[in-house]
């Protein structure tokens, strides 16, 4: 195998390199937790904020409204009724 002193240089530098301070790991993991928390919050609350914004603009109050209408039970009730509406 041909000599590769770039590799030897890397090994030497890694041996001589000081240890990564533990504070760096704490900082990285702390930032990672913060980022994850932020992204979870965005995931949870952004759709709700969007619905509130839509409601403020005069649209449907929320998507639950539409969901209620599309529930299988609601559809089931409607399906029992004859096409022209309730007879009684």
């Amino acid at each position: 195998m041909p000599t590769n002193n770039f590799k030897k240089l890397m090994e030497e530098e890694q041996e001589q390199s000081p240890q990564v301070p533990p504070s760096i790991e704490r900082e990285v993991m702390g930032s990672a937790r913060t980022i994850r928390l932020m992204s979870d919050m965005v995931e949870l609350y952004l759709p709700r904020l969007f619905n509130i914004f839509v409601a403020m603009l005069g649209g449907n109050r929320d998507s639950d409204h539409a969901n209620k209408r599309n529930r299988p039970s609601a559809r089931g009730n409607n399906a029992e009724q004859p096409p022209g509406g309730p007879t009684s």
């Binding site: 530098e13 890694q14 390199s17 000081p18 240890q19 990564v20 760096i24 990285v28 930032s31 990672a32």
Partner: peptide
């Protein structure tokens, strides 16, 4: 990988303090 990244940062930046900041930023 933190030791390898740190070592590369020292090799390129030639400053331990800057290499520490760089390692932190790189992993984030």
């Amino acid at each position: 990988y933190s030791t390898k990244v740190f070592s590369k940062c020292i090799s390129l930046l030639r400053d331990e303090g800057q290499a520490q900041d760089a390692t932190q930023d790189i992993f984030i």
